[in-house]
Design a binder for these strands. Sequence first.
DNA 1: CTGAAAGCGCTTACAG
DNA 2: CTGAAAGCGCTTACAG
Lengths: 325, 325
Amino acid sequence: MHAVAELAGCSTATVSKALNGLPVSAENLRRVYAAAEQLGYVPNLAARSMRQEKTMTLGMVVNFEGHPRSELLYTFQDLIANMESAGYSVLLSIVRNEGLDLDTLLQRFLAHRVDGLFYWQARPSNALAWYERSNIPVIAVGFRDPECAQLPFVTLDGAPAFAAACRDLKALGHRDFAEIVVDRADPLYKLYPRMRGVRWREIRIGHGEQDLRNAVEKLLTGGAAPTVVFAAPPTSTQLLSIAGELGLAVPGDLSVVSYFDLEDAGLFRTPLSAIRTDYDKLGDAVATAMLDALSGRQVGDVMVPDSAHFVPRASTGPARARPAG
Amino acid sequence: MHAVAELAGCSTATVSKALNGLPVSAENLRRVYAAAEQLGYVPNLAARSMRQEKTMTLGMVVNFEGHPRSELLYTFQDLIANMESAGYSVLLSIVRNEGLDLDTLLQRFLAHRVDGLFYWQARPSNALAWYERSNIPVIAVGFRDPECAQLPFVTLDGAPAFAAACRDLKALGHRDFAEIVVDRADPLYKLYPRMRGVRWREIRIGHGEQDLRNAVEKLLTGGAAPTVVFAAPPTSTQLLSIAGELGLAVPGDLSVVSYFDLEDAGLFRTPLSAIRTDYDKLGDAVATAMLDALSGRQVGDVMVPDSAHFVPRASTGPARARPAG
DNA sequence: CTGAAAGCGCTTACAG
DNA sequence: CTGAAAGCGCTTACAG
């Protein structure tokens, strides 16, 4: 910057003003721009951020417990593009069991003085208190642990799609619903109002295909087995192949619904019925919420409307006849 | 920091040294840590980076021309985790046709004073010269435009898998190979040594399913049509459904190979033969190269060995009998 | 080992 | 409109 000032024949203060659109004489403006151009001057954001309160950097931590659903890439893309258009850059971190723990990461972002944080699948963390103390907006995305209830939360409104799926299935004769839940994940069906006249159960399994295989075998032999099973990928797709191997017909013996749609689900041997979510809408809503928060507005929880739909395909069909009694 | 110094009863210089592991008396060390803890002190990386030459920030720009293959999420995850364990944070940017252009983005990262840049699908850009001038290591990943030949390049060694696919197909009687290339992408088959006794052609189409449909129809009516087609997703999967609609049997009339494997390709009605790549190996190799470059070592091009394999499935089969003459 | 002081590259009252 | 100067929060010779 000194070099620019020297070449332009003015002070660094004038350079700064010229480059930031503050009132400068036309002559100086021209010379500063010319000098900056000639020298290939690139401002140092770190220096700027020491004087101003903002770093124009946002943190995004994605907290995958189990399997990352790769369609999320689209939301990231959309979200990041939105924030970049607003002048921000985003630090991305994808947390897994291995690697640095969440607390360390959240603290590191704090050291970077991020202006805000996107927190996918928000779980409690000590570091969150620091964000609150520092008045850095944190937006929970997708899922929010009850212990993080203080965070504003943006998510898809899955209830109508879920209700539509249940209605369709009930019309097909299903009364016994189940959800397969992996590890310590929270069952999703509990998030939605229960439909009258249907029973729900929770089948909890560990990671690994063998766990799922055992569960499916138990389904086969159990007396009052569910006639339809909900699960998230990759469990929902594994279910299709395992059912095939074990001679369980889908949907003849068991209907299967995937909680999230897959790009190629329609091409499957048994096309997989799924709840399709509109990730672009989610990305846009999250971006809007963050921009609001950054400009000091209070932001509340957002349920993105009309952002999920039940797409029935061949993996759901009429409930199998139940053994009498 | 002043507050910490005051509480600990020493100078800020001593605080800095204590926190950075420089020699300090045990007594001061203890008091500084206690004070920092009590005050919830988080160092300001921006301030630090003004004195030191490093920001501990890396840029990653992913340059998707057409369709982002979402499996890349796994590589990002692996790569980011690696860099974070080494103390870095990474700024991610996913470039598309809409949104900020590449040059703006690269320049913004420069303003952030990134210590290095991962450049997926490296295309020429004016901003690259600035990185070179600033001596910031840039690593091209996945693909490198010939005009970016000066950049060290890390990619999968696809040649053995490609050769294996061609060998298998030739053994099945195929002589006429084609690749479907979307928009202005570069044909991939040209990257590899050509096998003797087979012909290759390039079928260039625009974005949009209709373009592909037209191309497939032309294949049906053309006299000397190829018997096997290579394409990248999503074209390879669209090909399966369009072939179905148009009454073209796969692999009876046409074999299809996907240049990249899809997680659920084995579940398809016609399981899709594909070249499966090991993204973890790529992520690790890229991380290693960057760490090397950051520590001042010269890094050359890296072809990650044994990182791609041909997985024949049901979409490839014997070549159809050719009309005599 | 310790601390006063200079300086990293900016921005912003402030006085002219 | 302009520029000298202070200051953002750190680190690092340097002198003690």
